[in-house]
Amino acid sequence: MTTPPAFPGSTVRSILLASDLSCRSDRALDRALLLARQWQCALVIVTVIDSAETRHLAPQERALHQRTAERRVLSDAGAADVPITVHVAFGDRVASVLEVAAQEGCGLIVLGAASHQGMGRMMLGSTIDALIARAPVPVLAVRQRARQPYPALVVASDFSPAALHALEHAGRLFPAAALHVFHALEAGPALGKSGGGAHERNERLRQAQALGDAHLAEAALSPALRGQVQFIFREGDAGLLLEAHGQARCDDLVVLGARPRHRLVNLLIGSVAQRILERTENDVLSIADTTGVPPAESTPDARGPARR
C-alpha cells in the first residue's frame, strides 16, 4: 500500500493541559511543556471550577475565584518559553475540557494520573475515564517525571484496526522514539492453549509473528518508521507484563488503541486496557480511531463557554 510520509509531532498546533491545580498536575505540566517545546507548539491550560462550589457566590466573588485560579496556573508554569493560554471554566469538568480542546484546536490532551495510596497504581478517576472515552484526540495520562523525551513507545496491540491506527499515529507523533509493538500471548483459537512443550510455544510465537508482520504491512508508516518497529511477544496477562515493563523502563510511553462503540469512543481491549491503565508505571497515551464515526458521536459534548 502507498504510505504517506511520517509527520512530526509539530503538526499538533496546540496541546491542552487539564489541571486541577494539585500536585499531581505538576508532572503533567512538565511533560506538556516539554512536548510543546519539542513540537514547537502552543500550550493551552484549562482548570475547571465546579459550579456547585461557586453557585452561592456573588458575581464579584466568582470573578475573584477565576482570577486566583488563573494566577496559580501561570505561577505553576513559570517563565515558560512557549506560548501559553489559560482558560478557567465553571461547570462539568469533562465537558469543559473537551469544549476548550475543540475551541483551541488542540491535538493532544494531557493530564496527571493519581495513584492508589500505598499501591503505586494509576487511579482511573471519572475525569480520566470519561476523557479517554469521549475525546476525539489522543489523551496522555502522566505519572512519571518528564526527565527527557520518551525514549521508546510500547504499543499494546491485538493486531486490530484500532491498534493499527494507534501505532501509526503514535509513530508519527514521536518519530525519534524506538517503536515497539507489544503483544501478549493468551489462550485463544488463533494461538492455541497456553503452556505446552517447546514445539507448541514456538508454533504460537510463529503464528503471532505472522500476524504481526501482516499487521505491520498494513501500517501507513514511512520506510524509516517501519524499519524502527520491533515486536515484543510475551506469554501472560498484558496488564501484569506491562507493569513489569514499567518497573524496568519507567520512562517509556505505553500506547493503547481505542475504537468507537455504543455511541462513544471506548477502550478497544476492554478489561485488558483497563488493567494496563491501572497497573503500569508508565505514562499512557490513549488514541481513539474515530474513522467512520458520525460527527455527532465524536464531537465533544460542550455545555457552556469556557472562560479565560
Score class of each variant (00 low, 15 high):
residue 220 A to T: 01
residue 184 A to S: 06
residue 212 G to Q: 02
residue 231 F to T: 00
residue 192 G to T: 04
residue 20 D to W: 15
residue 173 L to N: 08
residue 286 S to M: 05
residue 26 D to Q: 11
residue 167 L to A: 10
residue 5 P to I: 04
residue 160 S to Q: 04
residue 284 V to C: 04
residue 93 R to V: 15
residue 4 P to T: 02
residue 194 S to D: 15
residue 30 D to V: 15
residue 218 E to L: 11
residue 24 R to S: 10
residue 284 V to K: 04
residue 212 G to E: 00
residue 267 L to R: 08
residue 199 H to G: 13
residue 148 Q to S: 13
residue 59 P to N: 01
residue 231 F to M: 07
residue 96 S to A: 05
residue 58 A to C: 08
residue 303 R to D: 02
residue 89 A to G: 02
residue 62 R to F: 12
residue 297 E to H: 05
residue 266 N to Y: 05
residue 292 G to H: 00
residue 151 P to T: 01
residue 213 D to C: 07
residue 120 G to S: 13
residue 218 E to N: 07
residue 35 L to E: 10
residue 77 A to E: 15
residue 117 Q to P: 07
residue 175 P to E: 01
residue 16 L to G: 00
residue 218 E to H: 09
residue 14 S to L: 11
residue 308 R to D: 14
residue 150 Y to M: 01
residue 91 G to Q: 06
residue 34 L to S: 12
residue 164 L to D: 09
residue 59 P to F: 08
residue 298 S to L: 03
residue 1 M to Q: 02
residue 306 A to C: 08
residue 23 C to H: 15
residue 203 E to T: 14
residue 215 H to M: 06
residue 94 V to L: 04
residue 130 A to R: 14
residue 152 A to L: 05
residue 209 Q to F: 09
residue 278 E to W: 12
residue 239 G to S: 05
residue 119 M to C: 08
residue 134 R to N: 09
residue 100 V to S: 06
residue 173 L to T: 00
residue 36 A to R: 09
residue 111 L to H: 03
residue 235 E to Q: 02
residue 11 T to V: 10
residue 26 D to Y: 14
residue 127 T to W: 02
residue 115 S to R: 14
residue 215 H to S: 01
residue 286 S to C: 07
residue 29 L to C: 04
residue 240 L to C: 03
residue 128 I to L: 14
residue 158 D to G: 06
residue 78 G to F: 15
residue 114 A to P: 08
residue 65 H to R: 14
residue 67 R to V: 05
residue 293 V to C: 11
residue 173 L to E: 10
residue 126 S to E: 11
residue 161 P to V: 05
residue 155 V to W: 12
residue 171 G to I: 09
residue 236 G to F: 06
residue 73 V to K: 14
residue 136 P to D: 04
residue 45 I to W: 12
residue 272 V to G: 01
residue 260 P to N: 11
residue 222 S to D: 04
residue 286 S to D: 02
residue 187 A to F: 10
residue 119 M to V: 12
residue 48 V to T: 02
residue 125 G to A: 13
residue 215 H to C: 01
residue 9 G to A: 09
residue 74 L to P: 13
residue 161 P to D: 11
residue 294 P to S: 01
residue 16 L to D: 05
residue 74 L to R: 13
residue 128 I to Y: 14
residue 280 T to I: 00
residue 2 T to P: 10
residue 40 Q to N: 13
residue 150 Y to L: 07
residue 13 R to S: 05
residue 234 R to M: 07
residue 253 L to C: 03
